[in-house]
Design a binder for these strands. Structure first.
Lengths: 119, 119
DNA sequence: GTAATATATGAGCAGATACTCATATAAAGG
DNA sequence: CCTTTATATGAGTATCTGCTCATATATTAC
């Protein structure tokens, strides 16, 4: 494991802090996944989709009308959310109804909103 | 307010759902701010910085050593987090010590981690 | 004052991202 | 079978982002 001192010009003032931070640090793999979760929430269109689905399942063209963006754009975002396992769909004829797949989604949005509103 | 029907090719299958979703929708301004909050968490380097600062305040070069990225890169990320009012600093001589400015930061990270680990 | 240290900041660039547009697919109706 | 409807998907593109590199600033030591 590199200490950081063996790298060009990389000084450490408080080695103890760095060492103890390394001990409690989240693994690189988990950090990567974590950042992708937040990335899923880090776009206005996806946020609005996730928030709308909190109330009830909706199909692509309804979401398109709600957000006032193209159905293609909605579909692309839904694919990303599907890949992230945040939403799932159910087919009824030609219509696909999307729903939230995870109870943490509303919690994360609510917590972030709380943060905003306390500023 | 546009109903969505007056736009080229924008169909609505379930008008009732769209209308009720519009009623409970978060305002555009808040959606924008919300997405920026999540964006602040949506990068591995920033996540690691925020997580490290949960334990104790740290200076730029310590964070640089911890993350193994340049001090300039850390400084740029810290500026973003400062602008977002997620961190603040205190000067002691030439050293700037950064700390978390918001109690929701650890909560958001913990909640997202919980989500990950329940998969 | 000058030099050194710790950090900030602007420009520039490679990669990521959120859309558009055209095309493909899947189910239902005829 | 062919057509329509609802959605998916690939390519292309403009914008955004996270870094590097060079330079600027602020504080301390001399």
């Amino acid at each position: 494991m590199a200490t950081g001192q063996d790298r060009c010009g990389c000084r450490i003032i408080h080695l103890d802090k760095v060492v103890s931070a390394r001990e409690t640090a989240i693994s690189a793999a988990e950090i990567e996944k974590l950042s992708q979760v937040f990335k899923a929430f880090a776009d206005p269109s996806r946020l609005r989709i996730l928030h709308a689905l909190q109330e009830e399942e909706m199909c692509v063209c309804d979401l398109s009308a709600l957000l006032e963006i193209s159905e293609s754009a909605v579909s692309h975002q839904l694919r990303l959310l599907r890949t992230m396992r945040l939403v799932a769909n159910r087919r009824e004829g030609t219509v696909l109804y999307y729903r939230l797949l995870d109870r943490h989604v509303p919690e994360l949005i609510a917590l972030a909103l709380l943060h905003l509103r306390e500023e």
